[in-house]
């Protein structure tokens, strides 16, 4: 079962990314349990966790948010590829934080990135998914964590 400090690590990894990349921290909304199909935004960066624990963590964000984020990062390329790279980066940061905090218990995959198409999510059996809304400026994204 997911522990509080684990959830915190994933959340902090995400909000910190905004703080470091765009000098403006993201805040989180009220977390809830996912019911039914996950709601995906335009771009999704996902890591799979295997080993002693199994699960999936993904960050999904709308194009508008990513565009502003890229602007804040002084980027001028707002192409599809840039967006994909960006959500991949966020997923990477989350994975780095998790490795730092939990080390050997977690085997973390290379982030996979989805845009538009419905991603293949192998949610672990018996684990519910936690949805944490990520607010940044006027935009909202989601961090979804599901871990045995």
């Amino acid at each position: 079962m997911l522990r509080e400090e684990e959830l915190k690590t994933f959340v902090d990894g995400t909000t910190r990314y905004f703080e470091v990349a765009a000098q403006q921290p993201a805040t989180i909304g009220s977390p809830y349990l996912l019911e039914g199909e996950p709601a995906m935004h335009d771009y999704t960066g996902m890591i799979n966790i295997t080993g002693k624990r199994e699960g999936v963590v993904y960050f999904t964000a709308p194009r508008a948010m990513l565009t502003v984020l890229l602007m804040k990062m002084q980027e001028s390329d707002f192409s599809h590829e840039s967006m994909r790279d960006l959500v991949g980066e966020v997923a990477n940061t989350i994975s780095g934080n998790a490795r730092r905090d939990f080390g050997h218990d977690f085997v973390i995959s290379v982030p996979s990135v989805f845009a538009g198409e419905k991603p293949q999510i192998s949610q672990p059996a018996g684990a519910r998914a936690f949805v944490i809304p990520i607010h940044w400026r006027s935009h909202s994204a989601k961090l979804v964590v599901s871990l045995t």
């Binding site: 079962m1 805040t27 989180i28």
Partner: peptide, 18 residues
Amino acid sequence: LTGNDFLPMVLKLDELLA
């Protein structure tokens, strides 16, 4: 109050559901 304050609660909720 921020969303962070609700993180432990949602975990407990999950536990209760289980």
